[in-house]
């Protein structure tokens, strides 16, 4: 498993917390356990990576409320809820708000571990995508205003001659800008450049 990922367990029941901790430790996952939502929020770092295992029913701040608070702070950690008898309406609500899954107590441990691993994978993929997206955004951000205009126009399929007239510059200058854009973004063909443009546009939708 990915060493950078941590399973964050939040459950008010010490026994369940202990048991989960020992199980995670045994399967080689790194974990941190918290007795309350407040305790977790106190040590919450936006850069935390991994997933959350939340008891849906807790005093003061419930698992459901914690989900809301984390979402407000921009956290995208996948959440698996632990639910008990009669918590189905709450579980449904949790799923509606984007929880990854819920699992009923008492649970089959392998099922829980599978869910946790899935969550960790999802988080990993999400993070990779985010990293790619971030890289792309920063590459585009690195272009000068004139280069961005040329990028837009090239991606639209405009001929160099047309771009030169539109921007009121020489065709030769357009060619220089175009070469700079290709280099800065890191593509060699026009087709690649167009694909990046589509991906960048998708980010803004």
């Amino acid at each position: 498993m990915n060493r950078e990922q941590t399973v964050y367990v939040v459950d008010d029941d010490e026994g369940v917390r202990d048991g989960l901790g020992m199980l995670l430790e045994t399967v080689g996952l790194s974990y941190e356990a918290f007795g309350s939502a407040t305790e977790f929020l106190e040590s919450y770092d936006p850069n935390s990576r991994g997933c959350l295992v939340l008891d849906i029913r807790m005093p003061k701040i419930s698992g459901l409320e914690l989900q809301g608070l984390l979402s407000a702070r921009g956290s995208d950690l996948p959440i698996i809820f632990i639910t008990g008898h009669g918590d189905i309406p709450m579980a449904v609500e949790a799923m509606r708000r984007g929880a990854m899954d819920f699992i009923r107590k008492p649970f089959r441990e392998q099922e829980l571990l599978d869910r946790i691993n899935e969550a960790l994978d999802v988080e990993l993929v999400r993070r990779k995508r985010a990293q790619e997206r971030d890289a792309l955004v920063s590459k585009i951000e690195a272009l000068t205003e004139r280069e961005k205009m040329v990028f837009e126009a090239v991606a639209r399929g405009d001929m160099n001659k047309v771009i030169a007239i539109d921007l009121g510059i020489s065709e030769r200058t357009v060619e220089v800008h175009r070469a700079n854009v290709m280099r800065k973004i890191g593509v060699r063909t026009l087709a690649e450049l167009i694909r990046i443009k589509i991906a960048a546009d998708a980010l803004h939708d």
């Binding site: 029941d13 026994g15 369940v16 202990d18 048991g19 020992m22 107590k105 008492p106 649970f107 441990e109």
Partner: peptide, 8 residues
């Protein structure tokens, strides 16, 4: 709760 702990 204790049953879950026991199972774990």
């Amino acid at each position: 709760q204790p049953l879950t702990a026991i199972s774990l």
